[in-house]
Deep mutational scan, measured.
Amino acid sequence: TIDDAFRAIERAIQAENEGRYREALKHFLDGGEMIVTAAEKEASQKVRNLLLHKGKEVLEWAEHLAEWILE
């Protein structure tokens, strides 16, 4: 659900702030994927587009974090 997705993102932010970057990455990926999944089930085109945009933002952040971890 969207609530689960945002809880995962909150955990990711907390982990990132505490320097637990790999854990943060996992939570960002989980949250982003949950948002995209919820968007695919959404009946309203406007809400679907907003959710897809937010999911994409979260997944892009996860990608940047992963690249930073690997440096």
Rank of each mutant, 00 (worst) to 15 (best):
R20Y: 04
A43H: 13
R22E: 13
R11H: 06
N49T: 04
G31V: 12
R48W: 07
E18R: 09
F6K: 05
I9W: 03
L59K: 02
T37N: 11
G19P: 02
K54H: 08
A39N: 03
E18Y: 03
A62S: 02
W68I: 10
N49C: 12
N49E: 14
R48H: 07
L65E: 01
F28N: 00
A39C: 12
E40I: 15
N17M: 11
A39M: 10
L25N: 00
F28P: 00
K26W: 04
A12Q: 00
F6Y: 09
N49L: 07
I69T: 01
S44N: 14
W68R: 09
V58E: 02
K41S: 10
I35V: 04
S44F: 11
L29A: 02
D4W: 07
L51W: 05
I13D: 00
V58G: 00
K46Q: 11
A66Y: 12
N17C: 14
N17S: 13
W61N: 01
G31T: 05
G55R: 07
K46F: 12
A62N: 00
E23R: 01
A38Q: 08
V47I: 13
R20F: 07
K26M: 09
A39D: 02
H53A: 15
L59Q: 07
E23L: 02
N17V: 13
G32N: 08
E67Q: 11
I69F: 08
M34C: 08
R11V: 04
W68P: 00
E60A: 15
M34P: 02
K26H: 09
I9L: 07
K41Y: 12
E40M: 15
A38V: 06
G31Y: 14
R20L: 05
K56H: 06
L51E: 05
L59E: 01
R22V: 10
R48I: 07
L65P: 00
Q14I: 11
N17P: 02
E60F: 05
D30C: 13
A66I: 10
L65S: 00
G19N: 02
L52C: 14
G32L: 15
L52Y: 06
L50G: 09
K46R: 09
A8S: 06
I13G: 01
T37A: 15
E60P: 00
L65T: 00
Y21M: 05
K26P: 00
E16A: 15
E16H: 15
L25G: 00
D30N: 14
E23N: 02
Q14K: 12
L59A: 05
A66H: 04
K54P: 03
L52N: 07
I35E: 03
E63T: 11
N49F: 07
E60W: 08
T1I: 11
A39G: 02
A12L: 06
G55D: 02
E40D: 10
L70G: 11
E40S: 13
V58M: 05
A66L: 14
L25H: 03
E63G: 08
G55C: 11
E71L: 09
G55V: 13
V36Q: 06
G55S: 08
A39Y: 07
E33M: 14
L70Y: 10
T37P: 01
K26A: 10
G31C: 09
K56E: 05
A24P: 02
G31M: 06
G31F: 15
Y21F: 08
E60Y: 06
L52G: 05
H27Y: 13
L51I: 04
E67W: 09
E67R: 14
E57A: 10
E10A: 13
A5T: 02
R48N: 03
I2M: 07
H27V: 04
G19C: 12
F6I: 10
H27G: 11
K41M: 11
V36M: 15
R11D: 05
T1F: 09
A38C: 11
E16Q: 15
V36C: 13
F6S: 03
G32C: 13
G32K: 05
H53Q: 15
H53F: 08
A8Q: 09
G31W: 11
Q45Y: 07
E16M: 15
A5D: 04
E33I: 14
E10S: 10
F6V: 05
L59Y: 09
H64M: 11
K26L: 08
E40H: 14
T1W: 10
A24W: 03
R48L: 11
L51H: 01
K56R: 11
Y21W: 12
D30K: 14
N17L: 14
H53E: 14
F28R: 00
F28K: 00
V47E: 05
H64R: 11
L65C: 05
G55K: 02
L51R: 00
G32H: 15
T37G: 09
T37C: 11
L51V: 01
K46C: 14
L50A: 14
D4Y: 06
F6R: 07
V58F: 09
Y21S: 00
R7P: 02
V36N: 08
A38S: 09
A43R: 10
I69K: 00
L65W: 03
W61T: 03
K26C: 14
Q45P: 12
K26S: 06
I9R: 03
I9H: 01
L29E: 02
Q45K: 09
A5E: 07
